[in-house]
Nucleic acid binder design. Structure first.
Lengths: 188, 188
DNA sequence: AATATAACTAAGCGTATGCTTAGTATTAAT
DNA sequence: ATTAATACTAAGCATACGCTTAGTTATATT
């Protein structure tokens, strides 16, 4: 009985995600989203409720993209720790911007909103972090005699290292990033 | 011939710095600064020119505070690498907020503004990073046979590790932060 | 005491923010 | 063809933004 949507929600959310990724949550206005997504504000609000709704869907889109382009490769690799190292290098390319990098959307969000972030947003963030850590643990377990405790410690270490890489890639040159990655994996 | 200022610029900037530290640059409005600094917008603009001016002075204030409360202790310590490790633990306390942490103001700014930050702001950031790295290098040099190249690599590693700690302290618990610090210094 | 200078107050500038709503166009079932 | 339901356009809502300005108050010099 009703008119058809002239856009696919998944497609416009990918564009919204790009904008949030580049600019952060607060600095991305609904007018900017309107232009980038190519749809009117009415459509944005009828499809996603509010700005936070667009952001939550964008976080989800980011997770899918990261899974396809980064995490699945890591999962399917059989090089153990070496494959995690490769994941670090892959991440740099994954987050490449015009000149430097735009970091990891999840890390950017933690850094911008911190503990005063919305509950749903925090939940998405913790959920994503947990899923990455899980894969790290899998890789650390392969060909290893390490205890569960050691593996958990090392996974925590890698998670935080990755956040350092995310921030640093926005300002530091490739050589410094390489130094960091090489040192990070020296003793694992 | 003229009336006296009813505030000291250094004192009100410290309050502005606190606000920027907690909320970031964009999310801190001039109205918020007005309230926190305890002076009228006219006074803000006549003393500091514009919002960016307040921020630049705030960055400078942060640098002084970090020097006094963190860096000088590191400089005066003679424990070599162990003193850098202590610096990492000290940083966590330095950046303590109500519940979790507010990170490092410099790292927060890099993460928020990235490469599209104002030139003067970028310059302040790089300058601060260079001064910290310099102290790290000094400590790495003490009681060590490492080559200059190795020391530089390790300093780069520590700088980026610290940024990871800054972000992670906003969301992760103390145990995970401890794991991270302990693992970080196993690689040196 | 009069005066020039600068610091104050508070109202207001134009624009941008997140979000809504009145009115119109398009669809699929009757 | 009529109708009901939904998607569209575009104008507008109240509020907040960074910043300015007209008018007043306090000060050190004359």
């Amino acid at each position: 009985m009703a008119r058809k949507k002239e856009y696919k929600e998944e497609e416009v959310i990918e564009k919204a995600m790009d904008l949030f990724w580049r600019n952060g949550y607060e600095s991305t206005s609904v007018r900017m989203l309107e232009k980038e997504m190519g749809i009117n504000q009415f459509s944005i609000y009828s499809s996603f409720g509010n700005k936070k709704g667009v952001f939550l869907k964008s976080l989800n889109c980011y997770k899918k993209k990261a899974k396809l382009e980064l995490i699945d490769k890591l999962k399917n690799s059989s090089d153990g720790i070496e494959s995690i190292k490769q994941y670090f290098y892959d991440f740099i390319n994954f987050s490449k911007d015009i000149q430097l990098n735009k970091g990891c959307l999840i890390t950017n969000t933690v850094n911008e909103l911190g503990e005063k972030a919305d509950k749903e947003i925090i939940s998405e963030i913790l959920n994503f972090a947990a899923s990455v850590k899980k894969v790290f643990i899998q890789k650390l377990e392969s060909n290893s005699l390490k205890t569960t405790k050691t593996i958990n410690k090392q996974a925590n270490y890698l998670m935080i290292s990755l956040q350092g890489l995310s921030v640093a890639s926005k300002m530091f040159d490739q050589e410094q990033l390489n130094d960091f990655i090489e040192s990070t994996f020296k003793n694992l």
